[in-house]
């Protein structure tokens, strides 16, 4: 609001056109194009087959916005881990599904066949001898699938890291989504890991 050296001179306004006489609508010279058509026309100058590409893009967005959350919601509330115990951590795994901690209230039910599972909880020491069985089990599970490395052994070899027969971390074999520390982790920690995985699944976009 202080004084400035330049002064702004307002331009003279164009004269206001005479309004259409009452009772007569203004003439529409071109039919209005819907948004999709305009975008297609504009894009086709640069990209061949822009119409299909745009259509699939919009369909994908719709899938992301509408269908994906429903799938994620269903998936995260019915995680089926593989019923597979490897070492001492499997005892805590069993306790987590027992009456006291009752992981089934989160919809987590261990299944005995990898074909019915979407979650692999690696609960214990993985030796090199059993490594290819683990990979086979992982590959037998249908997509989408997740992996939880439970305990120090599965995370990084744990107390057996430099031993001659132990895989130093199961992420050398399969992609891991959630790591749970502890030797062994308590059942609460396992439940916490599962809930964290559920949050990750809810945000999944792919």
């Amino acid at each position: 609001m202080t004084g400035t050296s330049t002064t702004v001179v307002p331009k003279p306004r164009p004269p206001i056109e005479a309004a259409a006489p009452a009772g007569e609508l203004p003439m529409v010279t071109q039919p209005a194009l819907p948004f999709f058509e305009i975008e297609t026309l504009r894009a086709e100058q640069f990209i061949p087959n822009a119409k299909e590409a745009l259509g699939s893009m919009i369909a994908e967005q719709a899938q992301d916005k509408l269908i994906r959350p429903v799938f994620n919601w269903a998936g995260r509330n019915s995680l089926f881990p593989l019923h597979w115990g490897l070492a001492c951590c499997a005892i805590e795994f069993a306790a987590a599904f027992g009456a006291r901690w009752d992981a089934e209230r989160f919809g987590v039910v261990p299944r005995s066949s990898p074909r019915q599972c979407d979650l692999l909880i690696v609960n214990g020491t993985v030796t090199w001898k059993v490594a290819h069985k683990l990979i086979t089990l992982y590959e037998q599970m249908p997509e989408p699938k997740w992996v939880i490395a439970m305990g120090n052994c599965a995370t990084g070899g744990g107390p057996f890291r430099t031993a001659y027969s132990v895989v130093p971390g199961v992420d050398k074999l399969v992609p891991v989504d959630v790591y749970i520390a502890g030797c062994p982790p308590r059942p609460e920690a396992l439940l916490d890991g599962i809930l964290l995985l559920e949050r990750l699944i809810q945000e999944r976009r792919e």
Binding site: W128, A131, H132, I135, G157, Y164
Partner: peptide
Amino acid sequence: PEELEVKVRH
């Protein structure tokens, strides 16, 4: 662990 080269036979 890095020195121990074990090939996992699939």
